[in-house]
Amino acid sequence: MAVSARRGAPLSPEEIHAEALRLIDEQGVEALSMRKLAAALNVNPMSLYHHVPNKEALLDGVRTLVLSEIKPADDDGSSWQEQIRGLGAGLRALAHRHPSLYPYLCAHPQLMRQDGVSDVLCRVLAAAGVPEERMAAVRNALFAFTAGFLLAEINGMFPGRDDAAFEEAVTLIVNGLSAYGRDGSGGNAHAEVSPG
């Protein structure tokens, strides 16, 4: 672990990513540089390169940190509809907590891997009856729909946080997914379609 002569304490990847996120939240992704981050951490810029080889790797670590805020639940026995609503609410909260970062992540798909979130989503989609051969397409469509709504919301298309519009958007998703269980493609034949 690199130790800076200026600060005298070891620098950790967690500290680097947390400070990078703080700077992004304050100034935006474009304003972030390794030099600014090093100054904020009170270290020599070269110290950062012991932990992150470049800005893209730094942003990948920030992405991992931010997505960990969603904390997707293990299968707790709740309905897939409730789990979809929980994932949607988690992504929405993330977008509003980090409005400078979220659009950047959406515009850079190589950074928008969702790790554990994606695993939970696939499990929930399977419970909804989405066939394996359509899973990737459905997951991509859900990402595009959700990202579009959240980008519109954080960019001010709606007055403030429009909870009613968000609930309608999630209900559209739930109702659309319910069709997979009803049309014989597998899953729950008695899917709940009303808002939760």
Rank of each mutant, 00 (worst) to 15 (best):
S78P: 07
P72E: 01
G77K: 04
S100R: 12
H96P: 06
A93R: 15
A89G: 09
D76S: 01
L65S: 05
G61Y: 11
A89M: 12
A73E: 02
H98K: 04
H96I: 15
E69A: 14
D74S: 02
K71F: 00
S68H: 14
S78C: 10
L94K: 03
S100T: 09
R92C: 15
V62H: 10
H96T: 13
P72C: 01
V62A: 02
G86D: 06
L91G: 04
W80V: 06
I84R: 02
L94W: 02
H96D: 14
A73D: 01
A93D: 08
L65W: 08
P99W: 05
S100Y: 09
V62P: 11
D76Q: 01
P99D: 06
E82Q: 03
A89V: 13
Q83W: 08
D75P: 03
G86E: 07
A89K: 13
V66Q: 11
Q81Y: 07
Q83C: 05
V66P: 07
E82V: 05
V66H: 10
L91F: 07
W80G: 11
H98M: 05
S79C: 02
G61V: 15
D75S: 05
G90K: 00
L87E: 00
L65N: 04
S79N: 00
I84L: 00
L91H: 00
H98F: 09
P72K: 05
K71P: 09
R85K: 13
I70A: 13
R97M: 12
S68F: 11
I70R: 08
G88L: 12
T64V: 15
P72D: 07
W80H: 04
Q83S: 03
P99N: 03
G88Q: 12
D75M: 05
T64P: 01
P99L: 03
L94Y: 09
G77R: 05
E69Q: 13
G88I: 09
Q81P: 04
A73L: 00
A73P: 03
L67W: 10
L87V: 04
G77C: 03
G61D: 13
A95R: 11
S100W: 06
S78G: 11
K71T: 04
S68G: 15
T64L: 11
P72L: 08
I70D: 01
R97G: 12
S79V: 07
A73K: 08
L91R: 00
G90D: 07
Q83A: 10
I70K: 04
L94P: 02
D74E: 04
R97D: 13
S68C: 10
L87S: 06
R85C: 14
A95Y: 13
G86C: 05
G90F: 03
A73C: 01
